[in-house]
Simulated assay, not measured.
Amino acid sequence: MQLRGGGIGTAGATTNDNGETTNPTALSILAQQWCQFASKNFFLLGMFVAVGLARAFPLLGRSGGVLRAELFIGKFGVACIFLLSGLVIGAVRVEASSFQSQTQHIRLTDHLWPLASLVNMCVILTTAAGGSVATALWNAVISNLAGIFVTPILLLRFFGKYIQLPFIDMIVKLCSQVLLPVAAGQTLRHFGGKEIYKKNAKFFKRLQEVILLGIVWNAFCNTFAGSGLGLELRHALTLSILIPAMHLLSLGVLFRTFSLPIFKFTRREVVAAMFTASQKTLAFGLPLINTIFEGAPNVAAYCTPLMFVHPLQLILGSLCVPRLSKYVEEGDEEAKIVT
């Protein structure tokens, strides 16, 4: 039986081909609601599934196993993610008249918060709070690209004495597995790739999420097939307390910093700078970790804090949106009075 007439109406009824009205059962409505919830939260739920499968069947997805996950996910999958990133990055455009001021904002947020790389989430939160979307977009593009070069330098600076980091090999690997696919994505935009991406944006977004989940699955399979995660309960509890505290602190410090008169930022720009400088990307972070620490036994432990941060920064950022929206509106009212 095919359904028509707009599907489920206000009363939960459906109409079939004969014009007959039928009422769905409570179970079917619940199943529909669950499917909608799962679709909207596909990646978050997928992380739990990926880790659970890795724990139950660690030998299936480990590197060197039957499925050769390290090849199809660790190499081809990562290359595909950065290829798609090249297509997306090329889509961002800001009017030439605002280029100089936006470039200034990029320098400020990058210099004051150099350890933070950005994700589309910062643009979403900025938009919801009424901030400057142009500033958020510029920061997201430039900081993601800069992160490719800055990340290995920071790792060498802070952890070079404690972990093995062959710097030259790392740079070569990042160039071949990250920069080359990004450049290829940029090139493809001029040969029909732009239109293809626009027509299939939802598919490519879901493909990227599936690949990222594959990286998580492969990393945790390697861990559970070896000596385990290496993360004790007390450490996990510490992370669950420390990460939210650090994120809230960073939001507060950045907000106060960018509000200083010396920067001459509007309130909309303050909101954008605060969000873009505090967000840490999962879409870029996981592939970079997988590329830099390929073959390392503790790669899953390196991924764990980022997996904590991903849903956390969306929750905390969303809680800040109403207050920030009021802050922006008050600034608009003050500007009207002055003019």
Rank of each mutant, 00 (worst) to 15 (best):
D110R: 09
R189C: 05
I163R: 09
L84P: 00
L233V: 06
V88A: 03
L248M: 07
A140T: 14
A79F: 05
R55S: 15
I241Y: 08
R55L: 15
R93L: 07
T238S: 12
F82Y: 11
G185F: 03
I289C: 04
L282N: 00
E329L: 13
V338D: 05
K205H: 10
S278V: 13
G74I: 08
I163P: 03
N144G: 09
G285Q: 03
A54V: 10
W217M: 13
A136M: 02
A31M: 14
F72H: 10
S278F: 06
T21M: 09
N120S: 12
A201K: 10
L316T: 12
M121G: 06
V182L: 13
V328Q: 01
C320H: 01
V94I: 14
A300Y: 02
L242C: 11
L239I: 07
L125D: 02
E232L: 07
E330S: 08
R256T: 09
F293H: 08
P311S: 12
N298R: 11
Q36T: 12
V119H: 06
T22N: 10
I241D: 03
F265R: 05
E333W: 04
F293G: 01
V182C: 09
K280C: 07
T135V: 14
E95R: 11
A300H: 01
G226P: 03
K161G: 13
G230H: 08
K264I: 06
I148G: 04
M307E: 01
A273V: 05
K336R: 14
V141E: 09
G61L: 11
A184H: 00
L84Y: 00
E294V: 14
S63Y: 05
I289T: 14
L251I: 12
L242A: 15
T223K: 05
K194S: 13
L45R: 04
T187F: 15
V338N: 04
A50R: 01
T109C: 07
W138T: 14
L231C: 05
V210L: 13
A225I: 10
N120F: 15
T238I: 11
A31C: 14
E334I: 09
P166N: 11
Q102H: 10
N222R: 03
K173L: 14
A140K: 00
S240E: 04
A146E: 05
T266Q: 10
L125M: 08
L174C: 10
P261H: 11
L112E: 03
A31K: 13
L87R: 04
R62N: 05
I106E: 07
I171P: 00
T135F: 05
V123A: 11
C221K: 03
V338I: 15
G6T: 07
A183R: 07
I148R: 02
A91T: 09
E329R: 10
L282R: 02
L212R: 04
L156E: 10
E232H: 13
V172N: 02
L154Y: 10
S132H: 01
A335K: 12
F167V: 08
F263L: 11
I89Q: 01
F275S: 03
G193L: 03
I171A: 08
L3Y: 06
N18S: 01
G160L: 08
R4Y: 03
S39E: 15
L288S: 04
G61N: 05
R107Y: 13
M170T: 15
T14P: 00
A296D: 14
I29N: 14
L60V: 15
L179D: 01
F191V: 13
L288T: 04
I171M: 10
